[in-house]
């Protein structure tokens, strides 16, 4: 495998893992449920997207022709992440979960 492909794959994998870790850190340390929602929906989705992209480049460069089926995982994740975040936010608002005192604006009932 040419060295520059290996470097590109490594960069994508590292970038993706770092963002997945950032998403988990957000889930762990942010103060209330609604702020915690932001980490997983954005950082983790992009992180796994980058890992999948790295995998796509890796398997495409092995000489067996293009390997694009990892694209399915990426598209699926990017479509579903906002939907699950939306549903969880609705459930949390219905349960009137506590929010940080300085949150401005009111959730709907």
């Amino acid at each position: 495998m040419p060295i520059w492909i290996e470097v590109a794959v490594s960069l994508f994998l590292l970038f993706g893992s770092l963002f997945a870790l950032v998403g988990a850190i957000g889930l762990f340390r942010l103060p209330d449920f609604f702020t915690r929602l932001h980490g997983p929906t954005k950082a983790t989705t992009l992180g796994v997207g980058a890992i999948v992209l790295g995998s796509m480049i890796f398997f495409s460069s092995r000489g067996d022709g293009l390997s694009l089926h990892e694209l399915l995982i990426m598209v699926f994740l990017f479509i579903t992440a906002p939907v699950s975040a939306h549903m969880l936010a609705k459930a949390a608002m219905q349960q009137r979960l506590p929010r940080v005192d300085r949150t401005r604006g009111e959730p709907w009932e």
Partner: peptide
């Protein structure tokens, strides 16, 4: 909901591990 969200993140991470 916090626990459901944690499980949601957890399965996405597991997926990344499997791809790696």
């Amino acid at each position: 909901p916090d626990r459901v969200l944690a499980l949601d993140t957890f399965y996405i991470n597991a997926l990344a591990v499997i791809i790696l």
